[in-house]
Amino acid sequence: MSSETRTREFGFWIYLMTDLILFTSLFATYAVMAREGSISAIVDLRQVFLETMLLLSSSATCAVAMVFMERRKKETMLFWLAATFLLGSGFVFIEIGEFARMIREGYGPQRNGLFSAFFTLVGTHGLHVSMGLLWMLVTMMQTWMTGLSSSLQSRMSRLAMFWHFLDIVWICVFTEVYLLGSLS
């Protein structure tokens, strides 16, 4: 790995650390709000499980794509990235559906502080996933057109870092928000 790539990866790692602290503030806020109530009545754990599976699998396919990138197999890599993209889109799709259902049933973010915190925390993660999808799309198109240049490779590995990082945040989300919230 070139020194320049290492520097960029390290800088990106530091950015991820700051993002972690952004999420920390939202988690702390949620924990404070959860003192006042519970969302267990309106979450559907089966859906959350499905979301989790989609995201975990997308992490795996993303890792496979990186393996093929290192072997310089452009087409195979793009295939696995496309799979990652689809799984990630599935996740966002389900999340939007869940949000829409909750709002329809009168549990929107304006309901009270707890729901504001719920929508903001889960939504911020969802927004990150969506930005990751956009980034993936742009990078895939660039690779398709220009081939696997070294700068694209280095960008791709940062994208993979981002993607795995979002999984970690999701682990915290389903543990604190959904599972802990569903314990009686």
Binding site: T18, S25, M33, G37, Q110, R111, G113, S116
Partner: peptide, 29 residues
């Protein structure tokens, strides 16, 4: 700084989208 970003974003969500993070009513804190 990320904490400031988050706190201000929540304040803006209250102001722009009618949420209740820091309002005195509706379970805001």
């Amino acid at each position: 700084f990320p904490v400031l970003t988050a706190a201000l974003a929540m304040l803006s969500l209250d102001r722009y989208l009618g949420m209740h993070f820091f309002t005195a009513d509706h379970g805001g804190n």
